[in-house]
Computed example of a mutant assay.
Amino acid sequence: MHLQCELVAERALVNPLGVSWLQYDVLLQLDREHRMLPSDLSIIMGISRTKLSKALKSLKAMGYVRQTPSESDGRELHTSITESGRQLLEDISLQHTSLYETAIESMTKDELEEFARLSDKLSTSLKQQRIARHE
C-alpha cells in the first residue's frame, strides 16, 4: 500500500499538463497497442465504457488521440494515439528518470531484476483476470 501511495505522489509531480491519471493510462495503453476499439480498451483497462468515453473525448480535444471509423463497420471507431500524445508520454517519461535512479540506488542488481520480474508477473495476471471477466 505504501508503495502505491508513493508512486501516486510521484506521478502527480511529473504531470506538467494536468492530464488525469486515467487519461495518462489510456495514452500508455494506446501507445502499446497502437490502435484499438474503445470496447476492447475499456475491458483491458477495467473501466466502464462511459468513463472511457469521457477520457477519450477530452484526449481528442487536446489532440492526443484520434478516432477513425472502422472499415468493416462505420459505427465502430478505431482509436489511436497522435504524435502529440506520444510526445507528451515522452516528456513525462523523461521526468520518470529520477524514479528509476532512486530504484537503482535503493536496490541491488538482483533485487531490481526480481522486482521487475514480479511486477511483470502481477501486472500480466491482473490484466488476464480483467479480460477473462468480460469473456
Rank of each mutant, 00 (worst) to 15 (best):
G46P: 14
R86Y: 04
W21G: 11
T68M: 07
Y64L: 13
H78N: 04
W21F: 09
L13D: 06
T68P: 01
E6F: 11
V8Y: 05
S80F: 01
Q87N: 12
S93Q: 05
K109I: 13
S39N: 11
T102K: 15
Q129T: 14
D91C: 01
L88K: 01
L89R: 04
K60H: 15
Q95N: 00
L89T: 05
D110S: 15
E113T: 13
D73P: 00
E83G: 05
E71H: 02
E114A: 14
S48P: 15
H78F: 04
S80M: 05
L118A: 09
A9F: 06
M36S: 07
I44V: 15
G18P: 02
S72R: 04
L122Q: 02
R35G: 03
L126Q: 10
K60M: 15
A116E: 12
L27W: 01
P69I: 02
R35M: 07
R11K: 09
K60W: 13
K127H: 11
M36P: 03
Y64D: 08
Q129C: 08
I81S: 04
S106I: 04
W21S: 12
H96P: 00
K51A: 15
S125T: 08
H2F: 09
A9Q: 08
Q128E: 13
Q23R: 15
R86H: 10
V14M: 01
L37P: 02
S72D: 06
S72T: 07
M1E: 11
L41N: 05
K57I: 08
L22E: 10
L118G: 03
Y64K: 11
E90C: 07
M1S: 13
S58H: 10
I104K: 10
E33K: 09
L88R: 01
D31P: 03
L94R: 10
L41Q: 04
E105Y: 04
M36Y: 03
E113D: 15
Q23N: 13
S20M: 05
L27N: 01
T102A: 15
D31S: 15
V14L: 02
L37F: 07
V19D: 01
T68V: 14
D110P: 07
L7P: 02
D25E: 06
K127I: 05
Y24G: 03
Y100F: 14
M1K: 09
G18A: 02
R75T: 00
E6G: 10
N15P: 01
R32T: 10
L118C: 08
S42M: 05
G85S: 06
L3T: 07
I92W: 00
Q67K: 13
H2W: 09
T102L: 13
H34Y: 08
K54L: 08
I43V: 15
S42T: 08
L27G: 01
M107H: 12
K109A: 12
